[in-house]
């Protein structure tokens, strides 16, 4: 925890440590990141491994997987976000109470990965504000641990977002598939974002 000595020049004794309330609150926030149980594809297996005995995410106090978005702090998008799932991902993100963070885990969640086709969202960052991107197919559990530590660093000091390793994929570059035709955000998802509610999944295949 940080310590600011002699905050207003009034000469407190040495043994009184002064600090900002925000520093304490951020300390508590970053040390109790409860992830949402949200496995979409094979990256979820690595996420489960990160919870288990060899890697043990619980050391950082974030093994409390909450099944409900209302009680979770960080959403780990572990896997391929298909267009059918994308509105639900966004909806679950909207249901999480503030303050909330998002980790996009794996190449699929970062930029669609190998699935440059009609059914897969080309990166979760197109529909939600992602805080940390982890590359890899799938990433090792250590990478998830590293991402969690980076997220803690980000909560402690928001300035680190300007550092090079916090820069995510460039969504302005065209991809090879159908999304290259100027359709950056799929219509169904866009419609959801306007209305603020879920869409009929039958529309997505059309």
């Amino acid at each position: 925890m940080g310590r600011i000595k002699d905050i207003n020049g009034s000469g407190y004794p040495e043994w009184i440590g002064l600090t900002k309330l925000d520093i304490i609150l951020d300390y508590c926030r970053r040390n109790s990141l409860w992830p949402m149980t949200f496995g979409l594809a094979c990256c979820a297996i690595e996420m489960i491994c990160a919870m288990c005995s060899r890697f043990d995410l619980s050391r950082f106090g974030s093994e409390v997987m909450r099944p409900s978005p209302r009680q979770s702090d960080v959403m780990i998008i572990a896997g391929t976000v298909t267009l059918k799932m994308a509105p639900m991902v966004r909806r679950l993100y909207d249901e999480m109470p503030y303050p909330k963070w998002v980790i996009a885990m794996g190449n699929c969640a970062v930029h669609g990965g190998p699935f440059d086709d009609y059914a897969v969202l080309q990166g979760a960052g197109r529909i939600l504000p992602v805080d940390i991107y982890i590359s890899g197919c799938p990433p090792r559990p250590e990478a998830l641990l590293y991402a969690l530590m980076k997220l803690q660093e980000k909560i402690r000091n928001p300035k680190v977002v300007n550092e090079p390793h916090f820069i995510g994929p460039d969504y302005s570059k065209p991809t090879k598939g159908w999304m290259a035709k100027g359709e950056e955000i799929p219509e169904v998802v866009e419609e959801y974002l306007k209305q603020g509610r879920g869409v009929d999944s039958s529309q997505i295949l059309e």
Partner: peptide, 30 residues
């Protein structure tokens, strides 16, 4: 489960319950 459990927040993880409690207090109440 042959893991370690929370041990990073304070010595032996002793500040973990306080961190959890304060975080729940300052979380948005929906």
């Amino acid at each position: 489960q042959s893991r370690l459990g929370p041990n990073r927040v304070g010595p032996l993880g002793l500040i973990q319950p306080i961190a959890d409690g304060v975080k729940l207090f300052i979380k948005e109440d929906t």
